[in-house]
Amino acid sequence: MTAQSGHQPVGDIVDRLEDVVQRDNISLRDLFEEFGESSFLPALMVPSLLVVSPLSGIPLFSSACGLTIAFISAQMLFSRKHLWLPDFLMKMKIDGPKARKAVKKMRGVGAWIDRHSRNRLSVFVARPVRKWLQLLCLLCGLAMPFLEIVPFSSSLLGGAVTLLATSMLARDGLFALLGSIAIVAAGVLVPMGVMGVI
């Protein structure tokens, strides 16, 4: 199913985020409560989209998003029915104007993803493979706190998680492959950045 047929999973998530960020001060709890405790994939897309946004420049923000991605992915991996996140993450505050600016930037990314995602190559998002995709998201989330010192590395991993989450939402195997390739690219480029090669 394509965006042209009216189904816009990422755009719908951005719309709902836009409603929440109209407040002056927002916590991660406010963002996640918008989606409910059983909406794992939308919840996974929230921190992955945020870390791709300009908010990733805030110190420790990428770490918080990474840990959030790891907690959500781990619970998906073990097939929990209801999402739980620790208070120290849920209480994290985001400045309202910065959040609104970030969500505005997300809209273009979301529109592009929705235009190009559709149900295809379903073998790469079938149930056994989905566990692998969830594990990749978990590993990306766990890596982010260690990459604070490497510019844009967390955003690259956040983009990969966004692609993987979209692949599971839209049953799009091509996006699963693209997300996996992005993770491999990060695995090559990040160490090169640390060593000063690039």
Rank of each mutant, 00 (worst) to 15 (best):
Q4Y: 15
G6Q: 01
H7C: 06
V14G: 08
V14K: 07
V14I: 14
R16I: 07
L17R: 05
E18V: 10
E18W: 13
V20E: 03
D24V: 11
L31T: 02
L31D: 05
E33N: 13
E34Y: 11
G36I: 06
S39H: 09
L41Y: 07
A43G: 04
L44K: 02
L44E: 02
L55R: 06
L55N: 00
S56G: 13
G57D: 11
P59D: 09
L60Q: 14
F61Q: 10
S62N: 12
S63R: 08
G66C: 02
L67K: 08
L67Q: 08
A70Y: 10
Q75R: 08
Q75S: 09
Q75D: 06
L77M: 13
S79A: 15
K81R: 15
W84P: 11
L85V: 11
P86H: 05
P86V: 04
M90N: 03
K93E: 13
A99H: 01
A99P: 00
R100K: 05
K101I: 11
R107D: 10
G108F: 15
A111V: 10
W112I: 08
W112H: 05
R115H: 12
H116A: 01
R118W: 06
R118P: 04
S122A: 13
V123M: 14
V123W: 15
A126Y: 13
V129T: 09
R130S: 14
K131Q: 10
W132L: 14
L133M: 09
C137G: 07
C137K: 04
C137H: 08
A143C: 05
M144I: 06
P145D: 00
F146E: 07
F146L: 14
I149K: 06
F152Y: 13
S153P: 03
S155G: 07
L156M: 04
G158Q: 01
G159P: 05
G159S: 08
G159K: 05
M168A: 01
D172G: 07
L174I: 06
L174E: 03
F175C: 04
A176I: 00
S180D: 03
I181F: 11
I183H: 00
I183M: 00
V184C: 04
V190N: 02
V190L: 04
M192S: 11
M192Q: 10
V194R: 03
V197W: 14
V197E: 11
I198F: 12
I198P: 07
